[in-house]
Design a binder for these strands. Structure first.
Length: 105
DNA sequence: AAGTTGACTTAAA
DNA sequence: ATTTAAGCCAACT
């Protein structure tokens, strides 16, 4: 099934909105939760689109390394405000702050 | 229509 | 540690 941008965006927005403060999720994870494990890149694009005009906490979504988006600077600061710690190299401590999502079906 | 790009991921050099 | 390669697939040019 092809991901309708509307549906996919809706799923992504819904999932990202459910991320509790102090936790992060990778694009791949969000994509997988949205039922499209191979559209991690699309998640980023969608967040870029909706994040500017929606209440979706797009700052809680990072890449698989736990590193904030390459285009957006304040993200790290926002995560720090959520209580997320960073490694000296600038990566989030994923093994500790990676959100454990509810078992979806 | 065809080629390029990218807020990705994993692996390898 | 960093860079490259390749897989990935919708959106963009």
């Amino acid at each position: 099934m092809k991901p309708d941008s509307v549906q996919f965006a809706g799923e992504v927005a819904s999932i990202v909105s459910q991320i509790p403060a102090g936790y992060v999720l990778s694009y791949g994870d969000v994509a997988a939760l949205a039922s499209f494990p191979s559209h991690a890149r699309l998640v980023g694009k969608i967040l870029g689109n909706i994040g500017m005009s929606s209440s979706v906490p797009c700052h809680r979504v990072v890449n698989a390394d736990g590193r904030p988006a390459p285009h957006w600077n304040m993200q790290r600061k926002l995560l720090e405000a959520e209580g997320v710690e960073f490694k000296p190299n600038g990566n989030v401590i994923m093994q500790k702050y990676r959100w454990n999502p509810p078992i979806a079906e």
